[in-house]
Design a protein around this nucleic acid. Sequence first.
DNA 1: CCAGACGTTGTT
DNA 2: GTCTGG
DNA 3: CCAGACGTTGTT
DNA 4: GTCTGG
Length: 270
Amino acid sequence: MCGRFALTADLQELAAHFGGLDLDRLAPRYNIAPTQPVLAVMAAPTGLPGSNRAPWRAGLVRWGFVPGFIKDPRDFPLVINARSETVFEKASFRAALRHRRVLLPANGFYEWRKAGKGERAQPFFIRPREGGLIAFAGLMECWASPDGSEVDTAAILTTAANAALAPIHARMPVILKPEDYARWLDCRTQEPRAVADLLAPLADEVLEAIPVSDRVNSASQNGPELQLPAEFVPLTAKPQKAPHSKASGRSRPGEDEAPAEPAQTQLSLF
DNA sequence: CCAGACGTTGTT
DNA sequence: GTCTGG
DNA sequence: CCAGACGTTGTT
DNA sequence: GTCTGG
């Protein structure tokens, strides 16, 4: 599924990809974790004809969906995903699926391939082969606290993994093609059933998976080094304590460059 | 009818 | 093992 | 998603 | 709020 992702594009790239967004600033983030704020793109309030403002607006919402009818979020589990196969049947998602469909922009996401019992899971950074932005299909809900304040929350829709990701993980986020953004976001004229066809696995050839170090495991780590191809280490090797140097001999890229040459583009290794 | 749940992933 | 926090 | 805590009484 | 279970 999708439990971590990255959004490192600048405002210009975001505006170009989505055809205009009303954003002031956005820090690059290489390790977005559940409960943190995530950028959500949604339909703008029905505008005046002739308005030249952006067709969509964007804002930060909490990653962890809370249905509107919940009294105390502490009584509700953290819901970071919604299964596209069953989302139409769930009371929790009903209103959001009808009225608050969103896109969650990303430059890629992380999946952990679980090895045998006792072995460490291997994280992969998964991104478009051509680079640039992708957009997850998401649902948003506004939760009203007893004291009158409001919190917007969101979940990412999931679907079966495509052939490219299946060796790593059985599920993947629903990633929409740019030509489908408008239909997904148009909750005014598109009934939920009319957008159900969009909730499908992405074409196999779009994404590549890069094995990365397990520094990404810790949600407190957040930097471009999280996307560097992991150095090759035999699977039997144990993690080193490295008592003298925490640098472990690896040089860092000083800048915010994604890896220029992924170590591999097929997943059938190991 | 009322009571109680309301979610996903993964693992065995 | 299970829950909470990021 | 993974990491890290997981408890109480009473004292400074 | 809405659905499922009894």
